[in-house]
Amino acid sequence: MFYLSRIEHTFRVPPSLLNLPIEEAIKGELEKLFLDKVIADLGLCVSVYDIKSIEGGFIFPSDGAATYTVVFRLIMFRPFVGEIIAAKVKESNATGLRLSIGFFDDIYIPAHLFPKPSSFKPDPNKKDKGTWEWEYDEEPYIIDGIDEIKFRVHNVSYPPIPIEQPKEAKPFAPMVITFLCMSSSVSLLHMLGPKGSIDEDGLGPVSWWVDAEETKES
């Protein structure tokens, strides 16, 4: 989930920071540069972990500031494919679900990755909104926005910055996580007991698997 990444970067430290100790000044500049930003293929930068080395301090002709080459490590948020994450529902509409884990909101479950058969029940009061239901044994399991839901990461993508964006398009997101097969930890999750067998690969809604198993045994 969180990784360290070692990066080298050459940048200018403005003279206004000369009164600070060099490490502090550089750390501040690094935080300004990287914090809360997505680096393609590395993920979302959470924090500057440490500074390994500071070299240079060269002042280029006609520049009033020193330029340093710094090697440092960042804490990156980068989920791996197959990881299980618990998140909360943020939006629910006909195209799927959008989830949030507090500091990161670009998490989607597209409609085709829902367990089958799932259906979308539009909410008459709110435009475009509604709830998703999974049907099992003629019993609907509703995904409401209250409970945390666990998901398996299906894909993490870093879309390129669009040159021109249509007006009605969603705001650009530099990093998008797609999730697969959810197990909503709704009230269904209560089981535990001697483990029998699971006849499928277990890939899928955890709690619902439990449920399926119990039904079979009884």
């Binding site: 989930m1 969180f2 990784y3 360290l4 990444s5 070692r6 990066i7 080298e8 970067h9 680096i39 293929d41 590395l42 959470v46 924090s47 972990y49 090697v71 490590r73 804490i75």
Partner: peptide, 24 residues
């Protein structure tokens, strides 16, 4: 910017919390 090592070690959630707490 040069990425020297994309994966210089994984951190558990605890380690991140601990790091942030150490920052105050």
């Amino acid at each position: 910017m040069k990425i020297l090592e994309a994966n210089a070690g994984a951190l558990t959630n605890y380690e991140v919390v601990d790091f942030l707490r150490s920052k105050g």
